[in-house]
Simulated scan of single mutants.
Amino acid sequence: MTDRVENPSGWRLLAGFLLAPVPPVLLGALGFELMGDLPRFWETFIIGLIVFGYAPALFVGLPTYAVLRRKLRLTWLGCILAGAFTAALPWALLAIFPLATEASSNGVRTVVDGHPTWFGLFESLKSAAELAAFGALGGGIFRLIVAGRP
């Protein structure tokens, strides 16, 4: 028995890209709901699904899949790592190239004159690591959907 998927069908790929972001974003929205940070669960879920689920899947995940599918097979480890990369890359880029000219977090400056401070980089990379964990879950779900078997 092998861990690899040779050539997944088109409908499985479409289902994978459409459904894999849903459980991680649902889990994240539920976490915010339990902490009491956001007032409306379903609005948080829908916006999170678009911003943190489908946008990275479209702009990072799809090109990553297109490049790697010719060189690598769909393994569990590959999909989990690709999911983590897909979720974390946009946030990491925002940490390195901030859009704000001035910003702070808990009273500590994170961006000064358009450049991130060390504290800002650390805080942003912590968030990128959290997103990578959710992305890894999405990558595993993608593999499960595309392969059709565990």
Rank of each mutant, 00 (worst) to 15 (best):
R69D: 06
G31D: 08
V67R: 02
A88S: 14
W42N: 08
A92T: 11
I47F: 14
F59V: 15
A88W: 02
V22W: 14
L62V: 14
G53S: 07
L38D: 10
I47T: 12
F52I: 05
A57M: 15
E43A: 15
P24Y: 05
L58Y: 13
W76A: 11
G28Y: 06
T64H: 07
T64F: 14
A29V: 01
G53M: 03
L74M: 10
R69E: 12
F59A: 07
P90H: 15
P56Y: 08
I47E: 07
E33M: 11
V60N: 04
G36R: 10
E43D: 15
L30T: 13
G78A: 05
L94D: 15
D37Y: 02
G83I: 02
V51H: 04
L68M: 12
F59C: 06
A66P: 00
A57H: 09
G28N: 03
P21T: 06
L74I: 08
A87I: 07
F45H: 03
G28V: 04
A57E: 13
L94G: 13
L89M: 12
P39E: 13
R73I: 06
A84M: 06
A66G: 08
T75V: 04
L94W: 14
A29S: 11
A84N: 09
T64C: 12
F45A: 01
L30Q: 03
L77D: 10
A92D: 11
L81R: 09
R73S: 09
M35G: 12
A57F: 12
A92V: 10
F59D: 11
F32W: 13
P56D: 02
K71D: 13
P56C: 03
L68W: 12
A84W: 06
